[in-house]
């Protein structure tokens, strides 16, 4: 559906060139809810703007349904953009237009007649649950309502892809959850492929099936959300999944391991059993449980005893029970 091939974007500024995106290749399939996660400054926003060429890549190809967008004429590009909608962190609604008129906007651009546009806009406001606010101006709407209008507006041109640039970052947790479930529903019922840019792991967990982890303009890890979550290979992914990992670096003493619970073991008292069976104490540095695709997944950072025989015993105990673990490499300062 949408594919980036070796895409790079370099900004030339006053103090030298900045490589915001470096040689990124990604494949987004039809029907995906694809998460692109990274810390601020990782190049996420630039990367997503390369997908609809709001930023023209300085290298590489952007393929939409097999067509390289960078080779299109201006006119063809404008037409193609109607199939790739976008919503934003700041909503970007026209402040002087009502909710209904905002949703009409992309239809006006596409040359749809006024009465047809109005009818379609009303239907879309219905879908996002805002029919009763059709005549309200953005200043009269809450953040969540504004984003719903923005979603309705983005859907007006019957897009095949919806790009969400930190669409929930300005919203409170409850509103975030409701916006995310609206997006998931749109993906399911309307078959719209969704690309979600975020710095929050919980956004990825809640709706994405695939994820790419972006660090410093480079994709350091990509795959199914479950895979990446259970065995994160990159430092960035580990930090995003369980931010407690940093604490491990500063703890003195024994080795630190990260254990991952799958759907079954998270309901067993693993640590208690471990302590009882191995007759040793472990220090819990951090823990978190998440619901991914309806299954509970837990992560825990454990500090093993200083005694090497005891710690070996713990590791053997975990292997015997098929509980995966990774040793956290301490970067000594």
């Amino acid at each position: 559906m949408l594919e980036l091939v070796n895409v790079s974007k370099t900004f030339s500024g006053a103090d030298g060139a900045v490589e915001a995106v470096k040689n990124v290749s990604l494949k987004i399939e039809k029907g995906d809810i694809f998460g692109i996660i990274g810390l601020s400054g990782a190049g996420k926003s630039t990367l997503v703007r390369c997908l609809n060429l709001l930023e023209r890549p300085t290298g590489g190809k952007v393929l939409f349904k097999g067509v390289d967008l960078t080779t299109l004429s201006k006119k063809e590009l404008l037409r193609t953009r109607r199939s790739i909608s976008m919503i934003f962190q700041g909503f970007n609604l026209l402040e002087q237009r009502t909710a209904l008129k905002n949703v009409c906007f992309p239809l006006e651009i596409a040359g749809v007649s006024k009465s047809k546009a109005k009818k379609r806009a009303a239907e879309l406001l219905e879908i996002v649950g805002l029919s009763d606010r059709a005549g309200a101006y953005p200043s009269q709407l809450s953040g969540g309502q504004k984003q719903r209008v923005a979603i309705a507006r983005a859907l007006a041109s019957d897009p095949e892809v919806l790009l969400c640039d930190e669409a929930t970052s300005a919203l409170d947790p409850n509103t975030t959850a409701s916006i995310l479930s609206l997006l998931a529903e749109i993906n399911k019922t309307m078959g719209v492929t969704i690309v979600v840019i975020t710095h929050e792991m919980k956004v990825v967990e809640q709706i994405c099936n695939k994820v790419a982890v972006l660090d410093n303009g480079v994709v350091v890890e990509t795959g199914e959300v479950r895979e990446v979550f259970v065995s994160p290979k990159s430092e960035t992914a580990r930090n995003l999944i369980l931010p407690g990992a940093k604490a491990a670096e500063f703890s003195s003493g024994g080795r630190v391991i990260r254990i991952v619970f799958d759907g079954h073991s998270s309901f067993e008292p693993v640590v208690s059993n471990l302590s009882l069976d191995c007759r040793t104490a472990v220090n819990i540095l951090g823990a978190d449980t998440k619901n991914i695709g309806g299954k509970a997944f837990g992560q825990m950072l454990l500090q093993l005893p200083n005694d090497s025989t005891a710690s070996e015993r713990v590791l053997r105990w975990l292997s015997d029970r098929g509980i995966p673990y990774d040793e956290e490499v301490k970067t000594d300062a």
Binding site: L54, T80, R82, I84, S85, N92
Partner: peptide
Amino acid sequence: GLIEAAQSMG
């Protein structure tokens, strides 16, 4: 942002 939104709509 408004200009960018309009551009993203073609």
